[in-house]
Design a protein around this nucleic acid. Structure first.
Lengths: 135, 135
DNA sequence: TGTCTATATGCGTATGTGCTCATATAAGCG
DNA sequence: CGCTTATATGAGCACATACGCATATAGACA
């Protein structure tokens, strides 16, 4: 039957119904969450970050990217197909070569915001460190 | 031997050295890329998105989250540990309940930007939004 | 002390992912 | 036509990951 598998433990005793209700009210719709995760996943890999960061600046062919990343052409092509499927990059054929460009300004702005944040704080989490009793 | 495995194919004929050089110049540092991927990875999962979106609004205990997400307490705890390791969430103990809060404003702003983008355009890829002259 | 509840965590597993290898497609050129 | 180059793609593999199960820890309370 598998009656209540969801709860596991945690009877309703410990739950804060008001807080939960408030979160449910402001909750995100399922498809929004799915799309969000999909977008962030596109940025969740070093190789793709480098590809997108390069392509957001200029058009490059597969060969350029392979040399730039120091990776095999096949690996680059696979990632480009992945990004193409998500409509994040676009390609243009010129004779034998295929040029890629970034085609999603949302992704690039997310990436840029991430870069700005990380480069600003480097490794320091937040500079409001509570130094209560200093060593 | 595996002499030149990096190039695979693509002799230097097809490469555009100027473009590659420009990208190399503006390239991101390795640790930056690593941290970036790590941050985006934290947001690259529906469960974590829902957890972080909730915790960015208010403090919640594990039980609350489990009920909110309709997931087992164990699964929530695992994700919370993951986020705790990355210093994205913080916890506070009160009796035998543990309350979690979001502790990384960069992550929450990335999440919020992603939400704004997706909810704004929904399915339309690009709109060529007219840059309004006034803020 | 013992029991109950809330949370944490080790282990197992099913699924996902990023790459390589081999090969296919496609265009240029003799 | 065949040969070369640029890119794409299927198969396979090594590894990561998200969850469930069982159990451990930790505090409250009798």
């Amino acid at each position: 039957m598998a009656s209540e598998r969801t709860q596991d433990k945690c009877r309703e005793t410990a739950v804060h119904p008001d807080a939960v209700a408030a979160c449910e009210a402001s909750g995100l719709a399922e498809p929004v969450i799915r799309d969000l995760a999909e977008s962030f996943k596109a940025l969740a890999d070093p190789t793709r970050i480098r590809i997108l960061h390069s392509l957001s600046r200029q058009e490059l062919c597969v060969c350029d990217l392979a040399q730039l990343l120091g990776m095999a052409q096949s690996a680059v092509s696979h990632q480009l197909r992945y990004l193409r499927t998500l409509r994040i990059v676009r390609n243009r054929r010129a004779g034998n070569t295929v040029y890629y460009t970034c085609d999603d300004e949302h992704i690039t702005s997310l990436l840029q915001l991430g870069i700005d944040h990380i480069q600003h704080v480097s490794r320091d989490k937040e500079h409001t460190i509570a130094r209560s009793t200093q060593p």
